[in-house]
Computed example of a mutant assay.
Amino acid sequence: MSQNSTMQFTIPSHILAQELAGEVVLMNIDNEMYYSLNSVGSQIWQLLSDRLDLETAIEQLLRRFDIDEATLRQDVTQLVDELVAQGLLTVEQETV
């Protein structure tokens, strides 16, 4: 999926999330699948679940990590694409 920097995401009602020891564990109650995010993925999850747009989330992550912007954008986009593909996040539709 091509990401728009002002894109926002929501967590579907069938997804449960729990932080355990600095990592986030997700469960899709529809198919009973579990997913685990490492500490960096967990921080991305937290920012997006706080309903920050993608650009704001990336800006905050750039302040937290010593990484170049292009690499961070690629990594965040890849994770978001995977979360959306697995049904763990949905893209919030913009109203015009």
Rank of each mutant, 00 (worst) to 15 (best):
residue 18 Q to W: 01
residue 68 D to H: 02
residue 71 T to W: 13
residue 61 L to V: 07
residue 58 I to D: 00
residue 80 V to N: 01
residue 71 T to S: 15
residue 13 S to C: 03
residue 73 R to M: 04
residue 29 I to F: 02
residue 29 I to T: 14
residue 34 Y to P: 05
residue 29 I to Q: 07
residue 22 G to S: 11
residue 54 L to H: 00
residue 27 M to C: 10
residue 85 A to R: 08
residue 57 A to K: 01
residue 83 L to M: 02
residue 37 L to K: 04
residue 67 I to Q: 10
residue 38 N to H: 12
residue 56 T to G: 10
residue 66 D to W: 08
residue 41 G to A: 13
residue 66 D to F: 05
residue 63 R to N: 08
residue 39 S to V: 09
residue 61 L to W: 07
residue 33 M to G: 06
residue 52 L to K: 13
residue 21 A to K: 01
residue 33 M to T: 05
residue 88 L to R: 06
residue 27 M to D: 07
residue 71 T to H: 07
residue 66 D to A: 15
residue 68 D to T: 10
residue 56 T to E: 05
residue 35 Y to L: 01
residue 20 L to C: 06
residue 45 W to C: 08
residue 55 E to H: 04
residue 41 G to E: 13
residue 42 S to Y: 09
residue 12 P to H: 01
residue 19 E to H: 09
residue 32 E to P: 02
residue 77 T to H: 14
residue 36 S to I: 11
residue 59 E to I: 06
residue 85 A to I: 02
residue 31 N to T: 12
residue 34 Y to G: 05
residue 84 V to D: 02
residue 32 E to S: 15
residue 41 G to T: 08
residue 26 L to S: 14
residue 14 H to M: 04
residue 73 R to V: 13
residue 47 L to E: 03
residue 31 N to C: 10
residue 88 L to Q: 00
residue 52 L to V: 06
residue 36 S to Q: 15
residue 34 Y to A: 07
residue 23 E to H: 10
residue 12 P to Q: 07
residue 23 E to F: 09
residue 46 Q to A: 12
residue 48 L to F: 00
residue 41 G to S: 06
residue 32 E to T: 11
residue 22 G to H: 06
residue 45 W to I: 05
residue 22 G to C: 06
residue 14 H to T: 04
residue 60 Q to S: 03
residue 25 V to C: 08
residue 61 L to N: 12
residue 64 R to M: 15
residue 76 V to I: 13
residue 86 Q to P: 04
residue 36 S to R: 13
residue 23 E to G: 05
residue 49 S to F: 00
residue 67 I to Y: 08
residue 16 L to V: 03
residue 40 V to K: 13
residue 54 L to E: 04
residue 57 A to W: 03
residue 47 L to S: 01
residue 79 L to S: 09
residue 62 L to W: 13
residue 10 T to M: 15
residue 8 Q to N: 14
residue 72 L to V: 05
residue 40 V to Q: 11
residue 58 I to P: 00
residue 45 W to V: 12
residue 11 I to G: 02
residue 66 D to T: 12
residue 66 D to M: 09
residue 71 T to D: 12
residue 57 A to I: 00
residue 40 V to R: 14
residue 14 H to F: 05
residue 31 N to V: 07
residue 35 Y to N: 04
residue 24 V to I: 15
residue 26 L to C: 14
residue 36 S to M: 13
residue 59 E to K: 04
residue 46 Q to N: 11
residue 48 L to I: 05
residue 46 Q to P: 01
residue 39 S to H: 12
residue 63 R to L: 11
residue 52 L to Q: 11
